[in-house]
Design a binder for these strands. Structure first.
Lengths: 116, 116
DNA sequence: ATCAACAGTTCCGAATTTCTGAACTATGGA
DNA sequence: TCCATAGTTCAGAAATTCGGAACTGTTGAT
């Protein structure tokens, strides 16, 4: 398996963020990860209730989120742990992620990693 | 020519907004329109400095912006007048447009049509 | 009325991108 | 070693995007 690419904070591009979050499935995954109810594994994030996402599609969603700079993924044993980069992102793009999640009605209450 | 479709405020979808603004050319057009230095016509907005956008592509960009709910277009004689729907949009998606333009480094100083 | 010029739209084929089933890889446990 | 599990990669089909060429609608001139 190829090493996973994560852009440096300064290389994160707004168009990539917006593109990644222009897909409701990816937003749902990202929001779920932001609320962090689950452990952050792909399979735990796969269940969005409304449909079964094929695992190759799911893998691709994570790739898009990762390479846009929205999440970090790290292999832990047989699983993959994912976490958002909200705190960093809010530094670089103040208010952006928050207002997007709010627009989608997905803002997870008090998200302590993000300034208000 | 078919009548131009404009979604009602309540029908505007965040994914459409993000998709529309995930293209730097469209953002440049939208930002230029938001600053309103020009008259709002397509051809006036076409010149982004870096390249000549083919007019069919330009027309398509306006269509995407319009149908996502970001702008209103209205025929005025032989030309098309375009204006942003920033004020309405900010009501529906507070802070969203502003933070996107800021992220792109395109926030046009004091944009009076948008709350802060 | 006819014509030409102009602003923008529509059409349609080529190129690119997305989607997903199937095959594959990597890790851990029995 | 062999199997199960979690996720990635591959590859072909489907969908989307791009842009040149043709078209539409409006204005102004003759």
């Amino acid at each position: 398996m190829r090493p996973l690419f994560h852009p440096a904070l300064e290389d994160i591009r707004p168009e990539a963020i917006l593109y990644a979050l222009s897909d409701p499935e990816r937003v749902a995954i990202f929001a779920k990860l932001a609320t962090a109810g689950c452990g952050g594994t792909c399979s735990a994030l796969a269940d969005l209730g409304d449909r079964v996402i094929p695992k190759s599609s799911l893998s691709n969603h994570f790739k898009v989120l990762r390479e846009s700079g929205l999440i970090r993924s790290e292999r832990q044993g047989v699983e993959m742990r994912n976490q958002t980069r909200c705190a960093e992102l809010d530094e670089r793009f103040p208010g952006l992620i928050r207002s997007i999640l709010v627009a989608y009605g997905q803002f997870p209450g008090q998200l302590e990693t993000m300034s208000r």
